[in-house]
Design a protein around this nucleic acid. Sequence first.
DNA 1: TCTATAGTTCTAATTATGTCGAACTTGGCA
DNA 2: TGCCAAGTTCGACATAATTAGAACTATAGA
Lengths: 109, 109
Amino acid sequence: MFKALANPHRLAVFLRLMTCCPPGTVCDSDEEARRFVGEVGQDLAIAPSTLSHHVKELRQAGLLRVERRGKNIQCWLDARAVSGLADLLSGRSLGIVPETEPQAVVTRH
Amino acid sequence: MFKALANPHRLAVFLRLMTCCPPGTVCDSDEEARRFVGEVGQDLAIAPSTLSHHVKELRQAGLLRVERRGKNIQCWLDARAVSGLADLLSGRSLGIVPETEPQAVVTRH
DNA sequence: TCTATAGTTCTAATTATGTCGAACTTGGCA
DNA sequence: TGCCAAGTTCGACATAATTAGAACTATAGA
């Protein structure tokens, strides 16, 4: 997963999907933030094939999930994977800092 | 930072420094978990020069700090950098989920 | 002072990654 | 059916990352 986030373009895609509905917000638990592949690659100045490759990397890392929606393909972050990574870095997954109740916060769109 | 953690050997070094005194524990805030470079590279089956290179990468990424202690060189995690990364992944640094009080937990050595 | 230890720097070789273009697939629509 | 739009796959190439060995630096101890 760290390898997937190590590339600037992939990180940009990741952050674009994070900015709306990060883990812990209401809209995240009810319905994930979904964007079309073309949307998340907007203004990234890379070829469609390159974007596709990066999305595939994020998907194979388990950070991203995809689903065809007609002509487009939707993608969204795997909230469990992301919070798992956050827990690792905050020491929670090492069994030292106790788990906290997930705090739901309303996000305005 | 993600790029620094993307390498298996560097991640091993990182995790070895995380397992004792991860951010949020008492011993972390009072005194960081410090190990000699040789210690964190134990059982990694890489040449000293390679280990040195990886430590340098982690240091340049801002995740690690080093200090010479006699014949050895001590290294420890930059707690602020690590929790900053954790905050990014948990959505806290995006200004949506409110900051929580840092909970201190006693760590046994 | 001489030697051993712990680590660093530098260099070179192998391997991995990022990128694009061309050709292809899938679905919507006239 | 024909065509366009949105992505994907594949192949090729350029660049970056990983690695080890040799030579070096700094420190401790006899």
